[in-house]
Every structure is written in structure tokens, then in C-alpha cells.
Amino acid sequence: MAIIVDHLNYIYGQDTEQAVHALQDINLQIPDGQFIGIIGHTGSGKSTLMQHLNGLLKATSGTIYYNGQDIYDEDYKLKDLRSHVGLVFQYPEHQLFEADVFSDVCFGPKNLGLSKKDAELRAFEALRKVGFPEELFYTSPFDLSGGQKRRVAIAGVLAMKPDVLILDEPTAGLDPKGREDILGMVKSLQRESGMTILLVSHSMDDVAEYVDRILVMDHGRIAFDDIPRNVFSHVEELEEMHLAAPQVTYILRDLEKAGIDVDENATTVEEAASTILQAFGIK
């Protein structure tokens, strides 16, 4: 068990009149190598929870165990935790600052205290992993397209060699192909490097397509924690939480109502196509 979250509570402005209970009794187990999607409306506590996982915020009560160690223990070095759990913020390209792409990606590993050579090796590897073209290594990050900037920013975190990668809406503002490229790249990181991925997203369609497990956050609590098809079978509850199911799930529900016998819990276009074809006797 890589990460265990145990009765975690977080209250903003605890001693003020406007105290907000942002996380309420969160219990969670995150095994190695899983691809987890986190959904929830704006303000539901998704980002707050993510910031606890790499120690940027400290819980009001409860604790988090990383590989069996309590991260709030006095002897525990949070700096180590941050090199294991990489966090890619929303619009990470706003944090690019170096004169060229390669130096920007070197910044993280250098900060970990690695030698120049080791840092460069890691930067090279990280840029290759995100599929960034070598001929652009020495251009200014500010001359790149939105999708490429985002790759560089993700490479900057990967260069720290984290075991867990948290991405907060990595596809916001990207065109459809850019979204597919980034998510495909993240999926291959999980498959090939066995990295644990936590993906915060507002796109139900994307989550349905890529993740193994979904956490649904609502008012600081975990409302559902299950595989996509089970989570998306709660369409009405999700809508009450300002969320939705993938579009194909709605189509299948309509078909079922119209008397066509399909699996109404399919969540991707591929699954939906196959259950419809089956209903019409085509393989």
C-alpha cells in the first residue's frame, strides 16, 4: 500500500467566523500503479486533498501514511515526500521561467541536490518520456504551443522521478488532439513506468476513457470510490453534485428506455458501440 489517508480533516481559518470544513473524514487507500480520476464540482475539495498528498497543506486532524510512514511524524522529511509525490498544478506552463526548455526541466533535479550531469540526464529522460521533440530542447519555453508548454511543465515534475504523479486538470484549455496526446502520454507513464497517477478532471468523457478508478468529491467528502462504470451508474446523484455521466452513458439509458436492450453502464464510445452492435446482432 503506497498511500493511506486516515480520517483526514482540514479546516480553513479554524479560529475565525468563516471557518470552512474543506475536507471531512477522508479515508483512502491508494495502491501502487493505479490510474485514479478525481472528479467533483469547483470547490468540492479535490485540489485541497491533492495538496495534502504531497505535504503542501497539513491536515487539521487525521494523518497520511506514505509507504507505511506517517508524514506528519516529527522525523519525517517532507522534502523527501515531495520528491516521491510530484504535483503538476493547473496551468503549469505559467510556472515555466528558464531561458530554454532544457534548463527549465533541469531545475527540479538540481534542487534535489543532484550533480549537473545527473540533473541533465534526468531532464533528458523526462523530456523523452513526454514525447518532446529534441530539436526544440534549446528554444525558449515561451515560443511553444500550449500543448508543448504543458509537456515541458510535466517533464519538469517527472525529472524529479516521482513514484506518484498528481495532475490537476492537465488538459484545461487544450484542443481535442492536445487533450488526447497528454492523457495518452500519462497513461503510458502508468503502463510503462508503473507510476501511480492521480488525475483531477472536469471532463467526464476523459475520465471514463482513461482511469481504473474514480473518486468523486462532494462538499469535502468522498461520495463515491469505485470503477468508472459503477460510479457513472449513479447519474442522478452525480447531477445533484453538479457533475454528469459521460455522454454515451446518457445515450444508452435513452436506448434502454426506448426498448433496445443494451448495457446501459458502458462509459466509453468503444464500449457503447459494441453493446449497441450486439443488440442489433452485429459483431
Binding site: D175, K177, Q247, E270, F280
Partner: peptide, 23 residues
Amino acid sequence: LKELRLDVPQVTLLAHELRKKGL
């Protein structure tokens, strides 16, 4: 549209897939 890095609504894509398979 895919060549142009774009997409179609999921409903349209599903219909397109079903059509390709002969419906």
C-alpha cells in the same frame, strides 16, 4: 476534423462508429 486536431461530439462519434460497422 481529426486531421485538424479537432473532434466531434461523442454522440456524433458513436453514430459514425456504428455506421462504419454497417448500421
